[in-house]
Nucleic acid binder design. Structure first.
Lengths: 196, 196
DNA sequence: TTAACATACATACAGAATGTATGTAAAGTG
DNA sequence: CACTTTACATACATTCTGTATGTATGTTAA
């Protein structure tokens, strides 16, 4: 079983990301020691620093993988309808529910902005998981579904609202109930922007 | 000029909080070294650990002071109207604009949840700066101003939206312009919850 | 008023964690 | 087949938090 350098690299990085993702989400970034990560991944500090350069670099890789997973689910869910308004609502709810299910909220929403800085975090968020939201809103405004309003402002308001919703739901004892409450509230919230 | 223990304590703590607030907001929590903080405050590590117990303890004290400042401004602003609906809008805008002005967003919104944990951060936020939002919404619902909706859910949605708005505005080149856009958007957003 | 005590620090040190410099074996390349 | 690059391992330097201990000064009660 000979391995090419490329395969080896891919495999080592993947393993490190997996292990790090687990530890970052359970202990938080600050309390996860590189020493433990490499030990559990079966390599040494050398491998980690060779591929990721720093602890922050590793975190960024982990964050990207989490964002991508959620982004894919949102996209798939939104595509289930033809009506733009319905697509928007479906996408929002898909984001909230899939982010809640995923036990990586800490990486995605809590440590993310703090560790890599808000600007970088925002850029990554937009590229991976929030891209469609902005596009969807832009399209809807062009087609006259929305009242006149700054799309950038609206995008951030919605994004912030949903992120906080995810964290809140995760803290409540009855996820299903609070998810329903959030769904209702988001639907009403969006109603405010519907062109009359 | 003899100083009582109580005075001395008060003075040292205040000075440490001031210095720490400066460094936390400029360099971020992780990159602010206790050594530098105590040096700049003119005391030693002993004093810091005596009063605050840990770096996290110091941060929590700093966060509380920032939250209190903003909370006071929000309260004052909201009290300028008699109409509940107007009060709500005034309070929201006061929060956003005063948090934007304040150059401690990093402490308040970015490092806060990460350093002391989201649950603790939320509790502090509710006690200091977001308390009135929830109360205001509750009152308004009782008086029939709002559609039937979970107040908890709504509170978190609004809070999250505004926090994100603050960060976004801070990043834009023209604060005044983006603040206006956010104001419009928030007003529309709230409109969705108005009882018909 | 003075002995006993508590408080507010200072100092030195221990422990842990990140990052870096250097070495090495294997794969890739001309 | 020489030689270069890559993917690591290992040892070490640095830095930072937290703790243990010492001390001077203010406070309190007999």
């Amino acid at each position: 079983m000979k391995m090419s350098k490329a395969e080896q690299k891919q495999q080592t990085m993947q393993k490190l990301i997996e292990v790090a993702r687990e530890m970052f989400s359970k202990q938080g970034y600050a309390d996860a020691a590189m020493e433990d990560i490499v030990k559990q991944a079966g390599v040494t500090r050398g491998a980690l620093y060779h591929h990721f350069g720093s602890k922050e670099g590793l975190f960024q890789a982990v964050l990207a993988s989490v964002q991508k997973e959620i982004g894919d689910r949102v996209e798939a869910e939104a595509a289930k309808s033809e009506d733009p308004w319905q697509q928007l609502i479906l996408g929002c709810l898909a984001f909230v529910s899939s982010a809640v299910e995923h036990h990586n909220k800490r990486i995605l929403l809590i440590d993310g902005p703090s560790v890599i800085g808000w600007e970088t975090w925002r850029r990554m968020d937009e590229e991976n998981s929030m891209r469609h939201l902005r596009e969807q809103l832009l399209t809807m405004q062009e087609q006259g579904y929305l009242r006149p309003v700054s799309i950038d402002a609206l995008t951030h308001l919605l994004s912030g609202a949903m992120n906080e919703a995810v964290l809140w739901i995760s803290e409540t004892p009855d996820h299903e109930k609070s998810l329903k409450e959030i769904s209702t509230a988001i639907t009403l919230l969006l109603e405010g922007f519907r062109a009359k």
